[in-house]
C-alpha cells in the first residue's frame, strides 16, 4: 500500500508556535494573523479575526499535496485556530491535513474554525486526519464554499478519537459543483457529536455524504447529517453505525430538506451490532474475540492510506 508522506509539511504548528510556514511559487502559505494583516481581501473571507492558524492560497497548479500539521504537545494547551484555504480557478489540488496530540493524556483543547473556498472549476481532495488523546476536547467547525463546476472530495477520519469531539461541517454547493463527503470515526470512551449540512444551492449541484461510525467502549455518538436541496439537484446521505460495545450508543439522524420539486434527494441509515456468527467465524480462524471485533470494525470503517508525519506513522491500526 502506498504511504502518504507528510514529512514535508508546508505549515506546521506545535501548541502555539509556528515551526514551519513555507510559501512556494504559485502557493502562498502564511500564519492566519499575518495574512489577515497583509492581504486586505482575506479579511472578509476569514470567519473571524484570527489569533492563530494558517492561510493557504493556491494560485497555480502544483504536483505535490498541500500538507499542514497542527500538533498539541504540551499539557492543557488550548488552541483557537482560524484557517482559510483558497483554491483558484481550474486548479486541482490534494490536501493532507493532520491535527494531533503528541501524547495520549494532555487534557488539551483544539478549536478550529475555517473556510475553504474552491473557485470556479477547481478541484480538491481534502484528507483530514484527527489523532487525539483520550482526555482531549476537539471542536472543528469548517465551511466549504464550492463555486460553479468545482469538485470536492472530503475524507475526514478520526484515527484516535478524543474524549469529546464536536465536528461541524457546512458545505455550500453552487451551480454544477459536486461534493463527496466521507466521515469515519471510532469512539473509545468518547463523546462524539457530528453535525454536517450540505446546501445544494445551485442548479445541477450534487452531494453525497457517507458516515461510518463505530461505537466502542462506553462511547456516545450522535450524528445529524443534513442535505438541503434549494435548487434542482441530486443528493444522497448514507449513514451507518456499528456498535461493538454493550455500553456504547449511536444516534443517527439523516435529514432531507427539499425546496425544489425537481431535486432528487435520498438517504439510508442503519445501526447494527456484530453478529455472533461473524465472531465465531473469525475466532475459528484463530483470532481472539477482541481481534475479531477489531477486524470487523476496520472493515466497516474502510481502508485507509497510512500517513507518515515527523517519522511517525499515523494509522488507526496502531490503536487496534
Amino acid at each position: 500500500m502506498a504511504m502518504k508522506n507528510a514529512n514535508n509539511a508546508l505549515f506546521w504548528q506545535i501548541d502555539h508556535q509556528i515551526k514551519k510556514s513555507e510559501s512556494q511559487e504559485g502557493l502562498v502559505i502564511l500564519p492566519s494573523r499575518q495574512a489577515y494583516k497583509e492581504l486586505d481581501w482575506t479579511r472578509n473571507l476569514f470567519v473571524d479575526k484570527p489569533k492563530e492558524g494558517y492561510f493557504v492560497w493556491l494560485k497555480k497548479q502544483i504536483d505535490f499535496p498541500l500538507t499542514t500539521c497542527i500538533t498539541i504537545a504540551s499539557p492543557k494547551t488550548t488552541q483557537n485556530l482560524t484557517n482559510l484555504l483558497v483554491i483558484e480557478k481550474n486548479i486541482k489540488a490534494e490536501a493532507n491535513v493532520v491535527c494531533n496530540a503528541a501524547e495520549k493524556s494532555l487534557c488539551a483543547t483544539h478549536r478550529a474554525q475555517g473556510r475553504l473556498i474552491l473557485k470556479k472549476g477547481a478541484s480538491l481532495v481534502y484528507n483530514h486526519f484527527h489523532q487525539w488523546g483520550e482526555e482531549d476536547f476537539v471542536n472543528p467547525d469548517y465551511e466549504f464554499i464550492l463555486k460553479e463546476n468545482s469538485r470536492l472530495a472530503y475524507n475526514y477520519r478520526s484515527i484516535a478519537s478524543p474524549k469529546d469531539l464536536r465536528l461541524k461541517t457546512t458545505i455550500v454547493s453552487q451551480k454544477n459543483s459536486s461534493c463527496n463527503i466521507n466521515f469515519v470515526a471510532r469512539g473509545l470512551g468518547s463523546k462524539i457529536a457530528i453535525e454536517d449540512t450540505v446546501f445544494l444551492r445551485g442548479v445541477g449541484a450534487r452531494g453525497i455524504v457517507k458516515l461510518r461510525l463505530v461505537g466502542g467502549k462506553d462511547s456516545q455518538i450522535k450524528a445529524v447529517s443534513k442535505i438541503v436541496a434549494e435548487k434542482e439537484s441530486l443528493g444522497h446521505l448514507d449513514c451507518q453505525g456499528l456498535l461493538i460495545n454493550e455500553k456504547a450508543e449511536i444516534s443517527l439522524t439523516p435529514q432531507l430538506i427539499v425546496q425544489n420539486k425537481k431535486a432528487q434527494i435520498t438517504h439510508e441509515a442503519s445501526v447494527g451490532r456484530i453478529a455472533e456468527e461473524s465472531l465465531n467465524y473469525l475466532r475459528s480462524r484463530g483470532l481472539t474475540e477482541d481481534e475479531a471485533i477489531d477486524l470487523i470494525a476496520a472493515g466497516f470503517l474502510g481502508e485507509e492510506e497510512p500517513l507518515v508525519i515527523g517519522g511517525r506513522i499515523i494509522s488507526s491500526k496502531l490503536y487496534m
Binding site: 453478529a275 461473524s278 467465524y281 475466532r283 475459528s284 484463530g286 481472539t288 474475540e289 477486524l295 470503517l301
Partner: peptide
C-alpha cells in the same frame, strides 16, 4: 477451551455458509 484456542491447536472448520466480512 475458547474457539480460538481450539483453532490454534489444529482444529479447522470449513463453513457451509460462511458469513460476509465486509471491507476485508
Amino acid at each position: 477451551w475458547p474457539i480460538e484456542k481450539r483453532a490454534k491447536a489444529g482444529i479447522a472448520l470449513a463453513f457451509q455458509y460462511p458469513p460476509a466480512v465486509k471491507g476485508i
